[in-house]
Structure formats: structure tokens, C-alpha cells
Design a binder for these strands. Sequence first.
RNA 1: GCUGGGGUGGCAGAGCGGUCAAAUGCACUAGACUGUAAAUCUAGCGGGCUACGCCCUACGUAGGUUCAAAUCCUACCCCCAGCA
Length: 388
Amino acid sequence: MIATRTFEVLATCKDSKARRGRISTAHGVIDTPVFAPVGTQASVKTLLSEDLEKLDTQLILGNTYHLYLRPGMDVIGKAGGLHKFMSWKRAILTDSGGYQVFSMEQLRRISEEGVEFRSHLDGSLHFLSPEKAVEIQLTLGSDILMCFDECPPYPCSEDHAKRSLEITTRWAKRCKAAHETADRRIGGSAPDRRPSGSQLWGIVQGSIFPELRKESAKQLVDLDFPGYALGGLSVGEPQAAMHEMISLTTELLPADRPRYLMGVGTPEDLWEAVDLGIDQFDCVLPTRNGRNGQLFTSAGKLNLKNAPYREDFRPIDPACDCDLCARYTRAYLHHLFRSGELSALRLASLHNVAFLIKLMRKIRQFISDGTFKEEKKKFLATYRSQGE
RNA sequence: GCUGGGGUGGCAGAGCGGUCAAAUGCACUAGACUGUAAAUCUAGCGGGCUACGCCCUACGUAGGUUCAAAUCCUACCCCCAGCA
């Protein structure tokens, strides 16, 4: 019943599955399709909360595993939650630690009960279960909690993918139960700690096996979550496979619930996924690639550290009207990167996050205007894998 | 002037008879990065080829010893330290 209140579809595209919508949270409304920058350890790397506000960021990500290890739940608890701790007033989604099951393969062991992690910081042993992951996310004060899942690698055998999606479903049930129990238990306490203001989303797995994806989607839909994520994608599989999985999964998910493609992505991916019915994204790409000197522009990506930009006094993106593009040249950023100046990392991250957020804003408008398909075509015609 | 130390690829700096076109770092040239163990990682980096191999030119300069020299010897030219 919470589910039906938290998401609203405002407009749909006639020529695709794209839709414009709105997610309600305890920390404001999120206009979808939306892109969320990733702030793993209570920080979108190099950016401040006020930077994100200026860019009109509606949602950011935090990470259960990382924040649990450091600074620890005692600190976040005393701070009054993650919002207060990092002075972020808008919505926060927390990842459950499921991705760390994938990315820290050497440091963890999976059992039915949960996952045993060897801390990457000091080697200490920790155990994350569905119940524990929910508890941590509630302490963080997350607006959107994610179920604890097993994110399998790519490539992955069909057998592994099947076992993985099945345990993800069993864990999803346990997460849901833990969330509801907490809701009943603490429901009457301080308003900003009220779990009933939060929502727990399920995660569809199944690697790139169509039948497994369908099975996973069905199992999770039966559990009736207020939102659904597509996990285990953009982990190295061919782009066509990713698109196929998105397409067949969004077909099976209820139209009145938001669909979240985890870990995506590039500007091209965003257009494609919205086309296929995705409402929400998160990705480290704008910040990580920004720190590594790669900038998004409407003509394609730029490896700004490369020699040709030494004397390129054009804006980062000539087609962009943002403050950064109006003020700083490619040559300047090139110089900052070459000299190892910290401002390079910040400016590049700022630009890339701004680029994706603005892109999503435009996409929302195009959906409302009914011009999504033609605008998508126009964008992709000028966006190349290597810009100029 | 004497004594001692040293001159190696763009720079710093290993090597001290063959396995050396020469470790390593920096610089440089590209590429990668998708729910962040990432301000990171990978590759290339003397020249030329009928290129998983071959041929040139290279370790201050010029000679020499040796089957073989960046590595040993001689002379010369520079640099540094100490003494005059």
C-alpha cells in the first residue's frame, strides 16, 4: 500500500517505453527518469553537498558496506543519520553491499545465512545478512533501501546465475520482513528515524539468461516491492545483451513501480535504458572517469589529458551553457591534470555529474513534449565514442 | 695544480666482461574505467625492416685488450668534493 503512493507516472512516450514520473520520499520528490551520482562513503568524491544542490541533484547513493566499516554505525547513529552527517537534505538511496559481493570476490564467502567479508581496510571479519543490511540502512536513515543481493560476475554459468537469483529472492523476503518488523517496532519514535518513511526495493538478477531474468522478476514482483532494480548488469557483458535484459525485464515489472538500472552508465546507455522503460540510474562513471581525466561532451567523451588539448582554448563542451564551460577552457583543465592539481579532479567531476544531470532533465522534458525518440536520435548522431 | 669520486636513453638513476637497446622512477604517447578496495589501471616509449624475428646506431671523446666491452686498459675533454 505504501508502494502505490510512492510512485506516479506523469507521462509516457508513444513510440517507446520511456516514461516521466515522480517518486515521493521523506526527503523530497524525485523527478524521473533520474540519474544519481554515487557517494559511496558519505561523499560524492571531490564534491560537496552544496555543489550537488547547485546542480539540482535529486538523489545520491550511499553504501552500506563502506559506511558500516567506516565511520561505523555508532557514529552515523549519533550524527542522526547519513543526511545530517553529510549535510544532505534531499533523497538518499543506499546500496545494500550486494555489489561488494561482486567486486570483493577475493575477500568474501557466501552462505545461505549471508556473506562473510574480510574488511579491505584492516582485514577484520564481518558478516552481512539481509537483516543486518536492512538494519544498517535504517540506521543510515536511507530513503530508498536496497535488498541485500548476490550480484554475480560476468561471465557467469547458467547454474551459478540460477542459484544466485534464487538466493537473492530468499534474501529479498528476509529483507522485506526485517524492514516491516522495524517499521512496526520504531514506527512511533522520532519522525526522522521512522522507517515507515523509507522504502525497500527488490533487485532482479539472472545474469544474461532471459529465462532466469524472467524468473527473477516474477519472484520479486510476487513479493510486491515499491520499486524494482535491475542488478548484475554493466559488469562486462555485451551491450546488446544488457539491452535485451532490460527490455524483457521492464516488460514484466509493474507499470506503477519505478525501475532502477543499477550501475549505469554512459550517456548512450542512459538514452537506451530510458527508451526501454528505466526510471532511475546511478553510476560512478561521471566521478571516476572525471578524476581520470575523461570528460563528457555533447560530441562525445574527451580524454582531456591528451596532447591535442594542450592549446585547446575552447570550453569543455562548446554546446553546454553551464558555469564551468563558460569559464574554464580545455587547455586549463589539461594543464591542471598534467600538473596534478586537485582542482582538476573537482572540476572534471563537477562537469561530468552536471552533464548527466542536465541530460536527464532534458530527457524528462522530451518525454513530456513527446519528442523523446527524435531527440534521442539527434543526440546519438552527434555523440561519438571519442569526441573532438 | 694535487688527491679522490664521477660522466649511461628527455631527466633522475641501476648495471660494472657475454643472458643489455640497457632495471626502476619521472616525463612523454595512447587506451581503459558503468550499484567506487580506483586522484586508478594497462600498453607503448633509439632508428629501420620482407616485423612472435632480423639489421643498424647507441652508455663523455678517441684508441686499445678480448671470440665478446656500458662494463677492462691508455690518452684526452668535462663535472663534483677536499687540499693547495
